[in-house]
Write a protein that binds this DNA or RNA. Structure first.
Length: 214
DNA sequence: CCCTGATTCGC
DNA sequence: GCGAATCAGG
């Protein structure tokens, strides 16, 4: 697989939408999450809460536009070297709590891997709604909320809920029954002992498609 | 162990 | 440029 414009576009969109590298890789297919991460970085996409690396030395803490509350803005003043005999080292225990994690505002991510907004965060377009250009809206990177195709992986129950094409089509999403493509419950549906023809139930909810061959 | 993203480095 | 291997935190 190569990075076609379209694939790069999907990567961009999903990455910016907060999808994990794994999900993106899964969605794109043919690439590993490492490939996705590598590409994302090469594309300049970056910065996003990483488990690794809590803080960087000279991290330029953007004080953030503290609107009201005259918070004691402490200018870091990048002291070059100079041991500087600490003269006044008694920071008032007043307003100390480090800056709220309000860099790119940490949000939780929904089941579908989509950014959630807390009610209070509901912030309408800051300025008079800029004439947003309606974009084609790529086929991937959406279908929020439910376990979508994008969320499937080797240990996620792939039992389909609903039907492909329907707006709310999604997958079970439970932990898989080790060794099977479905969770325990759905394995129960998928694998049944033969019953006498006469009492056999007709509806065969096949997962659709076979194992995806890439 | 599972997950994450970051980095490195041979190709 | 690419991505597997590796690292390292949650």
């Amino acid at each position: 697989m190569s990075w076609t414009d379209e694939r790069i576009d999907t990567l961009r969109t999903m990455w910016e939408a907060g999808q994990t590298a794994s999900q993106i890789a899964e969605a794109l297919g043919g690439v590993s999450r490492n490939a996705v991460i590598g590409k994302a970085h090469r594309l300049g996409l970056q910065a996003r809460p990483s488990p690794v690396r809590a803080n960087e030395p000279a991290a330029v803490e953007t004080p953030a536009p503290a609107p009201v509350a005259p918070a004691p803005v402490v200018e870091p003043e990048p002291e070059p070297i100079q041991p500087e005999p600490v003269v006044e080292a008694a920071p008032e225990p007043a307003a100390e709590p480090a800056r709220e994690p309000q860099q790119p505002v940490l949000r939780s991510v929904g089941p579908g891997g989509f950014v959630r907004q807390s009610p209070g965060e509901q912030q309408p377009p800051p300025s008079p709604a800029p004439p947003r250009r309606l974009v084609p809206a790529k086929p991937s990177a959406e279908i929020a909320g439910k376990t979508s195709l994008l969320d499937l992986n080797d240990r996620i129950c792939k039992w389909p809920i609903g039907h492909p094409g329907e707006p709310d089509f999604h997958f079970c999403g439970d932990k898989v029954n080790p060794g099977f493509p479905y969770c325990v419950a759905h394995c129960g549906h998928a694998y049944q002992a033969q019953l006498p023809r006469r009492d056999r139930r007709p509806p065969p909810p096949l997962p659709f498609g076979g194992p995806r061959v890439r």
